[in-house]
C-alpha cells in the first residue's frame, strides 16, 4: 500500500487508552510520518491548543472527557481551535448529539465502532481540504469587503424595493457627513435635494431601469450640511445575502462640472471676440483699405508717390494681416460641447 508522505500535525483528544491506541495505529497505517499530539483531558488539550509552537492541521475530539464534556467541551475547543477543522469521535449513544453539534462549529463526526483506517484517513484529508477552501473563501470575501470599505470613492448598497441603505463605505460617510447609523436609517432619496424627489422617483421606479443590470447617470445630491453636489452614479444589480440589491459608486464631479462651465463660457466669449474681429473691426479697415486703393490709383498717375502715403498703405496692410491671424486662431477653437453635457 502507498502511504501518504505529506506532513500532518494531528491532535487527538481521547481519554480511553484503547481507543487512542487504535486511532494512532490507523493513522500510522495511512500516513508515513504523522506528528501525533495526544491529550487525555481538556486541560492538556487547552495546553497544546494554546502553544504557539504547534501548528495543527486537524483535531480529533472525544465527546466525554473526565474534566469536561458535551456542549461546553465543544464550545471551548472550537474557541481554542483557531478555525482548524474539528472531527468528533462519538459512541453510538452520542450520535444524535454529534449531528446537532455540527452547527456549533464542528466539521465532521465519526462513530467510533464504525471507524476503519480508511474512513479515518478519508475524514482527515477531506476536512483539512475543506477547511483550507473555506479559509480561502473567507479571505476572498474579506478582500471584496475591503474593496468596498476602503474604496476612496463613496459606495453604498441599497434595497431595490424600499431603496433603503443596507451598507455604506467609509468614503461615503466622509463625503456626505452622515454617521454610519444615520445612513442605515435613510434611503437613497435622502441624498437628494427635495426639489428633485419627483423627478428621481420617476427615474428610479421605471420598470426598465429597475431590471437593468448596469445603470449610469448624473444626479444632484445634497450633503448633510446642505451643500449641493453633482455626482456621476454607476450602479449594478448584485446578489447580497441571497437578495438582489444594488451597489452604487458615486463620483463627485461638481468641480469638474464647474470647470467645464467656466471653459464653455470662456469659449463663448472667444467666439464673440472672433466674430467682432472678423466683422466689426474689419469693416472700417476694409473701408480704409478701399480708400487707400483708390488713392493709390491716383498716386500711380503721378511720377513720384509720397513717402507718407506708402507708409499708410503698409500700415493698413499690416493691420489687415493681424486681424486675419486672430480670426484664424479663434476659429480653430472648436469643442464638441455635447460630449460632457449634464
Amino acid at each position: 500500500m502507498i502511504k501518504d508522505k505529506s506532513e500532518y500535525n494531528i491532535l487527538i483528544i481521547e481519554d480511553n487508552p484503547g481507543d487512542l491506541f487504535i486511532f494512532q495505529e490507523y493513522l500510522k497505517d495511512q500516513i508515513i510520518d504523522p506528528n501525533l499530539y495526544v491529550a487525555y483531558n481538556f486541560d492538556e488539550a487547552e495546553g497544546l491548543l494554546t502553544s504557539e509552537e504547534i501548528n495543527l492541521d486537524i483535531i480529533f475530539l472525544d465527546l466525554s472527557l473526565p474534566d469536561k464534556n458535551g456542549v461546553e467541551l465543544i464550545q471551548e475547543i472550537v474557541k481554542l481551535s483557531a478555525k482548524k477543522p474539528i472531527v468528533v469521535l462519538s459512541g453510538y449513544s452520542d450520535v444524535q448529539f454529534s449531528i446537532k453539534s455540527l452547527h456549533l462549529g464542528i466539521s465532521d463526526y465519526l462513530v467510533k465502532d464504525d471507524i476503519t483506517g480508511l474512513t479515518l484517513y478519508k475524514s482527515l484529508r477531506y476536512n483539512i481540504e475543506r477547511s483550507k477552501y473555506i479559509a480561502q473563501l473567507e479571505q476572498s470575501e474579506k478582500r471584496y469587503m475591503d474593496l468596498f470599505q476602503l474604496s476612496p470613492q463613496p459606495m453604498w448598497i441599497f434595497e431595490t424595493e424600499t431603496f433603503n441603505f443596507l451598507d455604506v463605505n467609509k468614503a461615503a460617510l466622509e463625503h456626505y457627513g452622515y454617521a454610519y447609523e444615520e445612513f442605515l436609517k435613510m434611503s437613497i432619496y435622502d441624498l437628494r435635494p427635495k426639489k428633485d424627489f419627483k423627478l428621481f422617483e420617476k427615474y428610479i421606479t421605471d420598470e426598465k431601469k429597475k431590471n437593468q443590470k448596469n445603470i449610469k447617470g448624473f444626479f444632484n445630491h445634497q450633503k448633510k450640511n446642505g451643500e449641493n453636489i453633482i455626482v456621476e452614479i454607476t450602479s449594478n444589480l448584485i446578489s447580497h445575502n441571497g437578495e438582489m440589491v444594488r451597489i452604487s459608486l458615486a463620483n463627485d464631479i461638481t468641480d469638474r462640472t464647474k470647470y467645464i462651465k467656466a471653459i464653455e463660457d470662456q469659449n463663448k466669449n472667444l467666439k464673440e471676440i472672433a466674430w467682432i474681429q472678423s466683422h466689426v473691426v474689419r469693416a472700417p479697415l476694409a473701408r480704409l483699405m478701399g480708400i487707400m486703393h483708390l488713392l493709390k490709383l491716383e498716386e500711380d498717375k503721378k511720377d513720384k508717390s509720397h513717402f507718407l502715403f506708402e507708409e499708410a498703405l503698409k500700415a493698413t496692410d499690416e493691420l489687415d494681416l493681424i486681424i486675419r491671424e486672430i480670426t484664424e486662431k479663434t476659429s480653430n477653437i472648436e469643442i464638441d460641447y455635447d460630449k460632457d453635457k449634464i
Binding site: 472672433a274 466674430w275 472678423s278 466683422h279 474689419r282 473701408r287 486681424i323 480670426t327
Partner: peptide, 8 residues
C-alpha cells in the same frame, strides 16, 4: 464682405 471668417 468685410468678413474674413471661414464660416461665411
Amino acid at each position: 464682405t468685410s468678413s474674413i471668417g471661414a464660416s461665411d
